[in-house]
């Protein structure tokens, strides 16, 4: 077995479960520590938006009992913990009686789709461009062009999103301003639908990509420069191998693994950036869900989406940690 020992797996999974447990507890504590009563706040805010609601006090009290907010805090915590690990998030306050799990089930595929595709592209192109950027044989003029593509690297993703929106959706009208697919197509495995999903997802993906790809490019460039001086690369040259073969098989191949680690570490930033981008493009994913839930003061949804984001981040970091020893023959955990 390639470097992956049971001891390591158990320890890593243990840490993972502990993270989940602590985050559930924190979500519970924070949502109770926020001043004001969530049901009351939500209904009063509705009243502020929509005018007087008849019998609002009766309604508020009814829902408080219904949502178990009048129970002792320890009972609430126990139930919350038990339900959360079963992916039972109760019902939305603002969209009562829609189960929060239904809302998440609808939103999650969009977020995962957008996020994974974007991450894949960032990894592929970021490392490809970074390798070319760092390669000593790349013509100078290409090396001067590359940084202009990384312009957005130090700005928040929401600004990039607004920027792209105003140029390509508002002014040029090449892409839609909002949504996930056109109302003229029928969802399913048909080409018009898939093409529409790609068209609608293009700008959101590009916003995330533009902001995040720079660090991958720079990381790869640094790795390629460093590894370019390694003995085995020089030996590969002495072997009379073709330069591009050396770049891919010797330099990049060895640089990819540290890049994978840094990808895992940047996961949190990538996801939080996506939340804002989704809300700008009204993309129906988890980011939009949490954005709306905060606006609607919908506590169960806020709790559930926060938990899902933590779960996604923690799981991807866990997966990369577990996969790493399998990919990199040098790493052995726990053994030796």
């Amino acid at each position: 077995m390639n470097g992956l020992t049971w001891k390591y797996v158990l320890r890593r999974v243990g840490i993972y479960l502990l993270t989940i447990f602590i985050s559930i507890t924190l979500i519970f504590i924070i949502s109770r520590a926020v001043p004001g009563d969530p049901v009351e706040t939500m209904w009063r805010q509705l009243e502020m938006q929509k005018g007087q609601i008849e019998e609002i006090d009766v309604i508020i009290d009814h829902y408080k009992t219904l949502f178990g907010l009048n129970e002792p805090i320890t009972v609430q915590y126990g139930k919350f913990l038990w339900n959360t690990i079963h992916f039972e998030f109760g019902v939305s306050y603002a969209h009562y009686p829609t189960p929060v799990s239904t809302m998440i089930k609808n939103a999650l595929p969009w977020t995962l789709g957008l996020g994974l595709v974007t991450m894949f592209i960032i990894f592929l192109f970021g490392n490809g461009i970074g390798a070319i950027f760092g390669w000593e044989r790349t013509p100078k003029f290409i090396k001067t062009i590359i940084p202009s593509g990384l312009l957005f690297t130090s700005i928040p993703s929401v600004l990039a999103a607004l920027f792209l929106l105003s140029i390509f959706a508002k002014n040029l009208g090449w892409f839609p301003l909002a949504g996930a697919y056109s109302n003229e197509v029928t969802p399913g495995w048909n080409w018009p639908y898939i093409a529409s999903v790609i068209k609608y997802g293009f700008l959101p993906a590009l916003s995330i990509l533009m902001v995040n790809i720079g660090w991958t490019v720079l990381g790869m460039r640094a790795m390629v420069v460093t590894i370019g001086g390694a003995d085995y690369v020089r030996l590969a040259e002495a072997k009379g191998l073709k330069p591009f073969y050396i770049l891919t098989q010797y330099t990049v191949r060895n640089a990819l693994l540290p890049q994978l680690t840094s990808l895992a570490l940047s996961m949190g930033g990538l996801i939080s950036g996506q939340v804002l981008v989704e809300s700008v493009f009204s993309y129906p994913g988890m980011g939009m869900l949490i954005f709306r839930a905060i606006r609607e003061q919908d506590f169960p949804v806020i709790q559930a989406t926060s938990f899902m984001f933590i779960l996604i981040t923690a799981t991807s970091v866990l997966l990369i940690d577990l996969l790493y020893p399998l990919i990199d023959p040098r790493i052995t955990h726990g053994g030796e």
Partner: peptide, 17 residues
């Protein structure tokens, strides 16, 4: 059609367009 746009900016853009 009731259509949802993400932000005030995109709504404004849609109005302008």
């Amino acid at each position: 059609i009731w259509i949802q746009y993400g932000t005030e900016e995109s709504k404004a853009a849609a109005m302008i367009n």
